[in-house]
Amino acid sequence: VTANAIAQVAIYMAVVVAITVPLGIYMERVFTAKPTFLDPALLPVERAIYRFCGIASETEMSWGGYAIAMLLFSLTGMLLLYLLERLQWYLPFNPQGLPGVPPSLAFNTAASFTTNTNWQAYGGETTMSYLTQMAGLAYHNFVSAAAGIAMAITIIRGFVRRSVKTLGNFWFDLVRATLWILLPACLIFSMVLIWQGVPDNLSPYTQDTTLEGATQVIAQGPVASQEAIKELGTNGGGFFNSNSTHPYENPTPLSNLLEMLSIFAIGAGLTYTFGLMAGDVRQGWALFAVMALLFLTGAFTAIHFEQRGNPNLAQLGINLAPSATQSGGNMEGKETRFGNTDSALWATITTDTSCGAVNAMHDSFTPLGGLVPMVDMQLGEVIFGGVGSGLYGMLVMAVLSVFIAGLMVGRTPEYLGKKIESREMKLAMLYVLIFPALILGFAALAVALPAGLAGITNPGPHGFSQILYAYTEGAANNGSAFGGLNANSNFYNWTLALDMLPGRFMMAIPALAMAGSLGPKKSIPPSAGTFPTNGALFVGLLIGVILIVGALTFFPALALGPIVEHFLMTGGILS
């Protein structure tokens, strides 16, 4: 790993740490209804929404009521998006005259954007009208992210409230997350992106003549306004097919850095919000430390393998060394303006979170460089994670960790003063087990059926990696494409939709239930036998549990894909 790479990662991490505290404080104020500087502008809007929708925002909900409100809200949004896609031909803001989206692709896309996955089996500029992009996809970018933040906040309430059966109001949390956090942040970030050269218009596509005299169609559209929420909401669905490799989505080194920062921003800030709501910011920093250490390990691993490149090329006399004139290493599928470091760093960031935006093609990474994004997702998207879902996933892992620690020393496990008992452990197991069941189950189905095998473009272990990656990003609600898999088929559209939906909702439900189970419990004051959950020992234990749960479950599948491909490459059998 070059000194330049170390410096870039260090600068990136330092800025993430710097924004965590102010963002965390602001979000805590928003969700506990303390005054904020945006109140004069937003309180009247909030009140108007509640009045228009007939919402009693002060009414507290049980965890079950909260979950059902979230489910019905998502169901309605998903069906409306499906309808919009199917009928876009008859609707305005369609200057290219794009036809209605076919049913299986529309279903896949509706499931994808409702679950905050934003997997795209389509090319945006050739499939979706401006109206579908703005009123359908961008709408879900906001509300699916807001629903994730809302769920994280309500789950924190379950952990920190004492002897209370209710956990807040879903509509209050949803509206606040959208109005106070996502909309203002996206407004500012969109302006910055426009300054950097990202277009935002409703014009027909431009036709131009290239230097060689050929005619080229240059896609246009409301890009900047959707680019901001794509990263801030850890959505990841690009306006254009090639996502953030496209110069209209990610034109400059500064836009690249800011987009990477905005992917981590809210997830990092929520750890501090958690610490504040728990009454001990060190609890939040402990979770932050776990996330940061796992992130740095993944980032440097991916950068190392991408900088080293393919040894078979070096044997042919090709110069892979980094220099002032070339990035060196493995540059297949990468933008020369980003090089190895920023491509591998972005890949780690986008898969640690459930973002899934890409600025390089993960399919073209070296086998072990490409293993890192896959493992990041398989660890359960808890490394900053999806906005909201990352934090509550980490809290489930924290509960598992204190349970294991309790078993070791023979004491009743506690977390934040709440006793962890059999009900919480059953719910934690439901949360943990459905994830690998979805990924490995669907991957096994795909490799067993001709319809699944038909999507593979590279035979052998790399083809298996393509399938494993696809169902991993689906269940993890990540949405990044490994690339190379022909996924716009009935088989992949349906199975990936049925992979994404439980990956979001069937995992959120047990997490909410756990909060509902902890909320009514009394808080026990710490004693000499209490395992402190705000120190280095807990950080180490939590990292161990996350790695063991992820690594043990997925190691055999990884051995069949990227690991064996690495040995075949180094042995000179595969180039």
């Binding site: 489910l71 998502s74 169901l75 199917r86 529309a106 059953k426 939906l501």
Partner: peptide, 30 residues
């Protein structure tokens, strides 16, 4: 044909969310 597929999508979506609501009920009784 496409109307039948539309219907299949709507039924599948509704079935999934109904199952999720039943899952909420199941987790309540756990």
């Amino acid at each position: 044909m496409s109307v039948m597929l539309d219907l299949l999508v709507v039924v599948t979506t509704a079935a999934f969310f109904l199952t999720s609501i039943a899952y909420v009920a199941g987790c309540t009784r756990l």
